[in-house]
Amino acid sequence: MAKVKYYYDPEKLAFLKIRPKKFKYLRNVFLFILSSAIFGILGLFILINTNVLQTPKEKVQEREIAEFKTNYLLLNKKLDLLAEVLNEIEVRDNDIYRAYFNTAPIPEEQRKSGLGGINRYRAFAGLTNEKILVTTNEKMDVLSKQIAIQSESLDDIIELAKGKEAFLASIPAIQPVKNEDLKRMASGYGYRSDPFTKIKKFHAGMDFSAETGTPVYATGDGKVIRANNQLSGYGNLIEIDHGYGYLTRYAHLYKYNTKQGQSVKRGDIIGYIGSTGRSSGPHLHYEVHYQGNVVNPLNYYYGDISAKEFELLSQEANQENQSLD
C-alpha cells in the first residue's frame, strides 16, 4: 500500500493530502513497465548464452562439437606435415630422379594447381564451423591431386629405370675375347696396311689374335640377326643387334655357338675364333656400329678392364701396323 503524503496549507492552517497528478502517475507506470521489459530481455539473453538452461542432451552435443573442432584442428596439422613430406618427394623427383634420366621436370604450376570449377564446398555454407570444414576439405583435395600426380611420376621413373637398365646392359661394354686368351691385340681401328695388297686402307674394327677355338663373347645384350658366311670377306660372321642404335660384328669364326634369331646376354659365348674368309691367320675381327656408322671399338671396353689395361690396349690399337684381314 502506497504511503499517503501530506503538506501544510498556511491559509487553512491545516495538513492536507498530496494528490499526485494523473500524468505523473502514468509516466511512472510506463517507466516501470519499460525497465521490467529491459531487465527481462537482458536476463533472457544471459540465459540463452550460458549453460544455465541447457538440457543434458544439449550439453552432450556441445561437448561433441568441441571434440569435433579439436579433431579437425589436429587433422589440419597432420595434413600440413603430409604436404611438407610430399614437397620433399617432389623436389627429389624433379631435381634427382628426372635429372638423372634426362627427363623434363613436372612444372610447379601443374603440381600445385587448384581444383577450379564450381564451389565444391557449398554444402558447408552457413554451418557453425564452416571455415575449418572448408579449409580441411580443400587441403585434402589438393593433397589427393598432388599425390595422384606424384604417383604417376614415380611410375614413369620406374619405367625409365627399367629402360635405363636395359639400355646399359645392351651397350657393347666388354672385350669380345678375354685377355688371358689373347696372343696379342693385332690391329686397331683406322688406316692399316692390308695383309694381302700391302696398301693402306681403312680398317673398320679391331683384330684380336688367339688360338683357333678360343671363345668369343657377346659384348652386350641383344639379338643375333646374322650367323652365316654370306657377307663377302668376313667368313663365318655373327651380327648382334643390341637396340638403341648399336650393332656389333664378330668375323672369321671357326664355328658358331648361337643361331640367327637367338637372344643373347653380355658375356655369352657366341662362337669360336677361326680364320675363315679373307684372313691371314686365326683372329677375331670385331666391329661396333652406332646409328649405321662404324665407330672405334676401343671406346667400348669400360666394362671389364682396368685403367692400366685400357691404356696398354690403346697403345697397341693405335700402332699403324698390318691388319690380319
Rank of each mutant, 00 (worst) to 15 (best):
A169I: 03
S263V: 03
G163A: 07
D9V: 11
D95Q: 05
V216C: 01
Q322A: 03
D268W: 03
E84G: 11
L79K: 01
G277Q: 05
D155C: 09
P10M: 04
K139S: 05
P105T: 00
L75R: 11
N257H: 06
T55M: 01
Y301F: 12
S144V: 02
M140F: 03
A227E: 00
L73H: 13
L313V: 03
L86Y: 05
L324D: 09
G40M: 06
E130I: 01
K183G: 07
L247C: 14
N318K: 10
P215R: 00
G213V: 01
A83R: 12
P20L: 10
Q319R: 06
R192M: 01
T276P: 03
R27D: 15
L74K: 14
I89M: 14
E287R: 03
N318A: 09
D156T: 11
A83M: 13
G261W: 04
Q61L: 13
L247M: 14
I174E: 07
P56F: 07
G213C: 02
E309L: 09
Q146E: 12
P105D: 04
E159F: 13
Y286T: 04
S187P: 02
K57Y: 15
P215E: 00
F310I: 07
Y189T: 06
L160F: 11
K198R: 12
D141F: 08
M140L: 05
L237R: 08
G163T: 05
F30D: 09
Y286N: 03
E211T: 07
V224F: 04
T197L: 08
D80K: 11
H283T: 06
S209D: 14
Q175P: 13
N102W: 06
D95T: 08
L160M: 15
G235S: 05
S209K: 14
G114L: 00
I106C: 06
E180V: 11
K223M: 10
L79C: 04
Q315M: 12
V177T: 03
G303K: 00
V224H: 07
